[in-house]
């Protein structure tokens, strides 16, 4: 991952922004909204991980898009404008095709945003956000992340050790499964024993007493407040535009889109502002650094 200015802001703000983008993208099905969301997600992916990663992610998303885009017109035959008829006499309608395409892009945008969120919301931030609300589950989450790499390297060690104690693995599924089961059963025994030592270490450090607190790794700064206010304003403007049907789109019974109006422009611009915030923040930092280093 590259240096990302948005990853440095307070997790509550970044989480809220992701949540707002995801919810609005999922619930407001509108070609312009979906488009803005998808393009912004792609831009931010480039900022976070580079162009090659974007290509890779898009290729991973492609099968979903095809399935989703095909599913709707094939099985939903409502709509006023039939385009052609299937072998069983059902109509493929223009409305169904449009809905399918838009919802496929919406799905792709969601997945791309989830990829970005994965890179930004590290386990530290998840634990920071939920440590107070769900202390036991956050702890399980943290302990599981601690366990997983240990288990994976343990699985490798056990597998290497078994090379000298058991006959070589033959090709084929059955022998692969047998080998895996044998490795897992050794690893599991160790993992469960080791979890007991872990619990001793927790109890030894006072776990289980009342009034557990959580370490605050992050501080809420003035910039975080500013960004939060900005995001809230963008969200409010867009929700207002959608609720007042200035931003409006429907596929059924016939495709209909609210005409361009001041309200629509404001709403869409606000949504674009929200979606582009992570990328713009990076651009802004870049500019600042360039000015700073030119003064040196």
């Amino acid at each position: 991952m590259r240096r990302d200015a948005f990853s440095d802001i307070h997790p509550a703000v970044s989480f809220a922004l992701f949540a707002a983008v995801l919810v609005l993208t999922a619930f407001v099905l509108h070609p312009a909204v979906t488009g803005i969301s998808l393009v912004s997600a792609c831009i931010y992916t480039i900022v976070l991980k580079g162009r090659r990663a974007l290509l890779f992610d898009l290729l991973a998303v492609l099968p979903f898009i095809i399935v989703v885009a095909a599913l709707n017109p094939l099985f939903n035959h409502e709509g006023a404008t039939p385009l052609f008829y299937l072998w069983n006499g059902n109509a493929v309608t223009k409305e169904a095709v449009v809905y399918g395409l838009v919802s496929a892009c919406m799905f792709a945008a969601l997945i791309m945003w989830f990829y970005c969120m994965n890179a930004v919301m590290t386990s530290d931030k998840v634990i920071f956000l939920f440590g107070r609300v769900l202390p036991a589950l956050s702890l399980i989450f943290s302990m599981t992340l601690r366990f997983v790499p240990r288990l994976v390297s343990r699985i490798r060690e056990v597998s290497a050790a078994q090379k000298s104690t058991s006959p070589p693995m033959k090709k084929g599924v059955v022998s692969g499964v047998r080998h895996g089961i044998s490795v897992i059963s050794v690893t599991v025994g160790w993992a469960l024993e080791s979890s007991v030592v872990m619990s001793d270490s927790m109890r030894s450090r006072g776990y289980g007493g009342r009034g557990r607190t959580a370490y605050a790794l992050y501080r809420f700064t003035a910039r975080d407040a500013l960004l939060a206010a900005l995001a809230a304003a963008f969200t409010a403007a867009f929700v207002w535009a959608a609720a007042s049907k200035a931003v409006y789109f429907r596929s059924y019974p016939s495709v209909k889109c609210a005409p361009m109006s001041v309200g629509a422009v404001i709403g869409l611009a606000a949504f674009a502002g929200l979606c582009l915030m992570p990328a713009l923040l990076n651009a802004w930092e870049n500019v600042k650094w360039r000015i700073l280093s030119s003064k040196l």
Binding site: T144, F147, R150, L151, V152, Y207
Partner: peptide, 23 residues
């Protein structure tokens, strides 16, 4: 839940996530 329960559940969860590596 107590420490013993939490660590055992975490261990089971981790096995569920990581066991795939053996196959």
């Amino acid at each position: 839940p107590g420490a013993r329960e939490l660590t055992l559940l975490a261990a089971m969860t981790a096995i569920g996530v990581a066991a795939r590596a053996a196959f």
